[in-house]
Amino acid sequence: MIKIQEADKVFQTKNGAVHALDHVSLEVEKGDIFGVIGYSGAGKSTLIRLVNRLETPDTGKVFIDGVDLSALNEKELRKQRKEIGMVFQQFNLLENQTVFHNIAIPLLLEHSDKSVINKRVQELLSFVELENKSDVYVSQLSGGQKQRIGIARALATNPKILLCDEATSALDPKTTESILQLLQKINKELGITILLITHEMNVIKKICNKVAVMKEGKVIEQGETIKVFSKPQEAMTKDFVRTVINSEIPETIVEQIHPDAPVVKLTFFGENATQALVSKINKEFDVNTTILFASVNELQGTILGIIILQLQGEKAETDRAYSFLQTQDVEVERIVIAHD
């Protein structure tokens, strides 16, 4: 649906050239909630703006449903933009206008009839659960309400793609939660593909089925969220995952760990019978297992479990147990514990 091919962009600033996008490629499929995560200055904002051509790449191409954006003239571009909604961190609403007027603007731009506009705005207000705010001025709304109006406005022209530029970054955790639920509803009920950028891993964890990690203009890692979360490759990805999924052995336990016995990290998805696995090791091999850490997380309905075990016993036996684990339906990783 959205295809970015080898996009490269350099900005000239007073402090020299900034490589905002360094040969970035990614593909968003229909129905995805695709999240791009990175620290500020990673190039996320530039990346998301390629999709509605608010930014153009120096080299590389951007396709929407196979249409090359760079080939569109002004008029065609404006038409294309009406099929792509966008919401912003700072909402970008007309503060001194009513909620009704703000949502109606995209429809006014399409010269829709007054009755059509009235009906559509009411529909949208009820979709974002702010039916009674039609005549209220935007300046009187809370941040969360403003973002709902921003979303309603973005949906007014029935777009097929919704771009979210740090849509929850200005909101408190509780409001963030409700906006994320709303985005999920938009994706499921209206079938709208969502591309979002964020610096909060929580947003990715909650709603994104795919994720790309950006650093200094490059996409350093991308894939299905569940895969990236369970097996992050890059150091920065690991840092991000750590902010939402704990897999660290608590300090006090580290101190008690037997220095010679191997420590193993098991990562499993779905209804994996880990308990059974652990007891099986105890029975079949002459080893004692100690659970050092365990956590269970839910990622879009899939369970992601992490268990860190210590295998104590003769080396031959622990090696056998380790080999056995590798044949099972879990990710196995040997952990080296550094004692001070």
Binding site: L54, I84, M86, F88, N92, L109, T157
Partner: peptide, 11 residues
């Protein structure tokens, strides 16, 4: 940001 939103709407 307002101008950017306007452009994004295809104005």
């Amino acid at each position: 940001g307002i101008i950017e939103a306007a452009k994004a709407m295809g104005a």
